[in-house]
């Protein structure tokens, strides 16, 4: 049975097909440069002020809408009242930064889903899985948060790439104290290698 090999041998010309670009560039209108100096960017108008909810099955360029679509029960956040915005920055798996204006009381899982960031919440934000694992980038902010309870820690124990400042996104609720928070989404778990099965 070597149909695949046969297929490959019979199609030498196909090898010249240019490889698709896997570059994360131009991924998203909401990629912002790292605001390394000013805590707030000079022109807040560039920021997304409200959740960008799109039609769930649009064939538009933003295919990730899927992750934050139809079900109304998750990812729902209200746009912040002007003048009362809090800012949180997510650094996604590809290293792109997403600085978002959010309201007090929103949790990071809802925020991420409402903005189509790649964060699952398999248990719907009930602290029963570790799919919304985030790493808080500044110890100072981590210390400002109420300590994780046993249930959250139990789930974090199972999270891949656990760090000292790991938290579950569903348990971090935005408060004025956390304005300017920066969190990183951990890379996916290692892929299984074929050697695992030998």
């Amino acid at each position: 049975m070597s149909n695949s090999k046969m297929f490959a041998q019979l199609l030498p010309s196909l090898r010249l097909v240019p490889k698709r670009s896997a570059s994360p560039i131009a991924r998203h209108v909401r990629c912002y440069a790292k605001p390394s100096v000013a805590p707030l960017p000079a022109s807040p108008a560039r920021l997304v002020q409200s959740p960008m909810r799109r039609s769930p099955w649009s064939t538009s360029l933003q295919t990730r809408t899927f992750s934050a679509s139809a079900a109304v029960s998750h990812g729902h956040v209200d746009p912040p009242t002007p003048g009362e915005e809090l800012y949180v920055t997510f650094i996604d798996k590809e290293g792109a930064e997403h600085k978002l204006a959010v309201s007090k009381g929103d949790n990071l899982l809802d925020i991420a889903q409402a903005h189509d960031l790649e964060m699952e919440g398999a248990c719907g934000g009930s602290c029963a899985c570790s799919t919304c694992h985030v790493i808080v980038l500044d110890q100072e902010y981590y210390d400002k948060m109420p300590e994780p309870d046993d249930d959250e820690n139990d789930m974090l124990d199972l999270a891949f790439g656990l760090q000292e400042t790991s938290r579950l996104g569903c348990q971090i609720v935005m408060t004025p104290e956390l304005d300017g928070l920066r969190v990183k989404l951990p890379a996916m778990t290692r892929n299984l290698q074929s050697s695992d099965f030998k």
């Binding site: 769930p56 099955w57 079900a71 699952e120 719907g124 029963a128 899985c129």
Partner: peptide, 20 residues
């Protein structure tokens, strides 16, 4: 007695609602 673990069904319903 782990109903919260079953919340992933919401995501599956969302998938199933696609015309594709």
């Amino acid at each position: 007695d782990h109903p919260e673990v079953k919340n992933c069904q919401e995501k599956f319903e969302e998938v199933a609602s696609s015309p594709n």
